[in-house]
Design a protein around this nucleic acid. Structure first.
Lengths: 304, 304
DNA sequence: GCATGATTATGAATATCATTCATTAATAAT
DNA sequence: ATTATTAATGAATGATATTCATAATCATGC
C-alpha cells in the first residue's frame, strides 16, 4: 500500500533522474529504492520508471505520483507549521551567517517564503566577515551558520545540506579554454578573482594551490556578478560553485572547467546550537532549504 | 515520522470517538492504535486525543491532523483513479443488486459521485426482487450484490461493509413505548410492516420470531417513508436499520427500541465475482462506500 | 459502596516488512 | 575489449509496527 516514504522517493527520483542519487537524497541505499519502485509497480500494475541508458526517466504513471507527492508533502509541512503554532513554539530568532557569499543566490527566495510562514520569527542575515563563524553561535551573534565546517564540537549540530563542485570560470576566449581539466600549475601565471575573504577560506587555494606551492595574484570583488564581469573581461580566473554560474555558462558569457581529475568538491552544512536544532521553525527552514536546493540547483549531491 | 497509516487512523478516531472502534475500522487492534497515538504525541510534543470518560475526543492538534488527512487521502484516491485511467482499466460495468431496500439511502449519493469519477463505467441498479441474488453474479445479471450473505463460494468474494443494528420502530404513543427492550413475545399481537420480500429475508422473523414460534400479521410497503408513515399512524410495528430511521427518531416522528437484550444485528457485504474484485473502479467504489458509510451512518461497526 | 463491564494504556514478545548486503546484469565510456 | 557506473535481484538482516497479556481507568447497576 502507498505510504509517504514512496512519495518522498518519487520526488527524489524525479529531481535526480537516477536511482542511486535519489537514494542518497532520502538517505537510503540504491537497493532499497529499487525494491520500493518494484513494489509500487506491481501494486499498480504499471511501470513507474523507464531505463534510459545510464539514467532513468519517469513514466506517465510516475509523473502522476510525483505531482501527488508535491501536493501532499507541502500540505503536511503546512500542517506541521500549524501544530508548531498550537504548541506555541512559533517565535524566536533565526539570524543566518553565511560563510560562502554565493549562497545568497538560493537563500533569498527561501527566506522570503520563511517570512510568510513564520511571521513571528525574527529572520536576519548576519553581515560582515567573521573569522570563526561557529564561534558566533556560541557567542549568540547568530543562530545558523551556513558553511563547510563540520567538526564535532559539543553543543553544536551540523545539518548536512549538500555537496557541490567548484569550477574554474574563464572567459570564453581564454588561453586555457582548450583544456577540459585544469591543474594547479595552470593557475601559476593567472590572476585569481575571489570574494574578499582570507586565503584559508578559499577552497581552491587551500586544497589545490597551496599544496602545490602555487600562489597566484589575487583580486577581490564583493558580488558574484562583479567577479564574473571581471572574468569575462579577461582580468583573471575565478573558482565558483557550479550552480552559481550555471546561467552565465548557459549564455556563453563565461566557460567553466573542472579543477583536477575528480573535480574540486565542497560540502555545505547548516550548523546550529543543539537547542536551536529542535525548534520547529528551524526544522521547517532546514527541510525547505534542502528541498529548494535539490529542486533548483543542478549538479549538487546529497551528503552522508 | 508521520506516515499515511497515522492519517488513516486519525480519521477513524475522528469518526468514532473511540480507540477500539477506530481500531476495528482500520483492521488493527486497540493496542496498535494506542501505540500509534502515543508515538505521534511524543513526536509532535502535543496531545492528540483527550479522554472524556468512556470515549475520547480529539484535541485541536488532532483535528488539525484530521483535516490534513481528509485532503491527503482524497488526493491519493484521485491519483489512483488517474493511474487506472493510464492503465486503461477504466471501463466496464457495475450493476448493483440490493438485498435490503433501505440501502438506497446511503447508496444514492455514492452512485452520483461514482458516475463523475468513472464516466466510462456503466453504472446501474438491478431492479426487481431476486430469490438468490448471489446467483445473479454468476449468471451475469449483476456485478455487485449488496446484502448480508457471506457464505464461502468458489469464484465469489464477499467484501465487508459494516455491521448495524436493527431496531423496532413504534409510534410515539404506542402501548409498548414503556419497554426499553422488546422481546419476541411483544410481537405476538401486532402487525409487522415490512418491505415486500419473503419471510426468510426479514431478519426479525428469521432470527427472532420464527425461533419463538411467533407469526404476527404482516403488511408491506415499497418505500421506507411509506413504512414509517404506517408506523406513525398506528398501523403496526416495523424493524429497520438504526441509521435508516435516525432522522425520523430525532424528530420524534417515531420511536425506536432495541430487540432482545443484545439487540438484533446484521452484517452487510458487497459481493462480487473474483474478477470484478480486482477492477480499479470496483476497488474505488468499495473504499468510497466504506468511507461514506462510516462518515455518515451513526451506530455502525466495522466487520471482522 | 462495591462489583461488573467496557474502555484505554503499557511493556514485552512477536511478526512483518523495509532495508541492507552481496551479486549479477546492463549500459556507457576509454 | 575493458573498465567504470548504474540498476536489478534474492537472501539475510534489522528495525519497528503490531499483537498479546495485563494493568489501570472509568462508568453503570445493584
Amino acid at each position: 500500500m502507498l505510504e509517504l516514504r514512496h512519495l518522498r522517493t518519487l520526488t527524489a527520483l524525479h529531481e535526480t533522474n537516477s536511482v542511486s542519487l535519489a537514494a542518497k537524497r532520502v538517505h537510503l541505499t540504491q537497493s532499497a529504492l529499487s525494491h520500493q519502485i518494484k513494489a509500487l509497480q506491481t501494486h499498480y500494475g504499471l511501470p513507474i520508471i523507464q531505463r534510459r541508458g545510464q539514467s532513468i526517466e519517469l513514466t506517465e504513471a510516475g509523473k502522476c505520483l510525483v505531482s501527488l507527492s508535491g501536493k501532499v508533502l507541502e500540505e503536511i509541512q503546512a500542517t506541521e507549521r500549524d501544530l508548531a503554532r498550537i504548541s506555541q513554539q512559533t517565535s524566536g530568532s533565526l539570524r543566518i551567517a553565511l560563510e560562502c557569499h554565493t549562497c545568497f543566490d538560493w537563500l533569498m527566495p527561501i527566506m522570503d517564503a520563511f517570512r510568510q510562514h513564520w511571521p513571528e520569527v525574527e529572520l536576519d542575515l548576519v553581515s560582515g566577515f567573521h573569522s570563526d563563524p561557529i564561534k558566533l553561535l556560541e557567542e549568540g551573534g547568530a543562530d545558523v551558520v551556513i558553511g563547510s565546517e563540520c567538526q564535532k564540537q559539543r553543543g553544536i549540530v551540523h545539518h548536512s545540506l549538500f555537496r557541490f563542485e567548484i569550477l574554474a570560470v574563464l572567459a570564453p576566449e581564454h588561453a586555457l579554454r582548450g583544456k577540459r581539466i585544469l591543474q594547479a600549475t595552470d593557475f601559476a601565471d593567472v590572476t585569481l578573482i575571489t570574494y574578499p575573504v582570507p586565503e584559508e577560506r578559499i577552497d581552491l587555494i587551500r586544497k589545490v594551490l597551496k599544496p602545490a606551492g602555487i600562489y597566484p595574484q589575487r583580486r577581490t570583488a564583493e558580488l558574484t556578478v562583479a567577479i564574473l564581469q571581471l572574468v569575462a573581461s579577461h582580468r583573471g580566473i575565478a573558482a565558483l560553485p557550479s550552480w552559481g554560474i550555471k546561467s552565465y555558462v548557459d549564455h556563453d558569457y563565461v566557460i567553466a572547467r573542472r579543477i583536477g581529475a575528480n573535480g574540486l568538491w565542497s560540502n555545505l552544512y547548516a550548523s546550529t546550537l543543539k537547542e536551536t536544532a529542535s525548534r520547529p521553525y528551524f526544522r521547517d527552514f532546514l527541510t525547505t532549504a534542502r528541498n529548494a536546493c535539490f529542486a533548483t540547483l543542478e549538479g549538487i549531491i546529497p551528503l552522508e
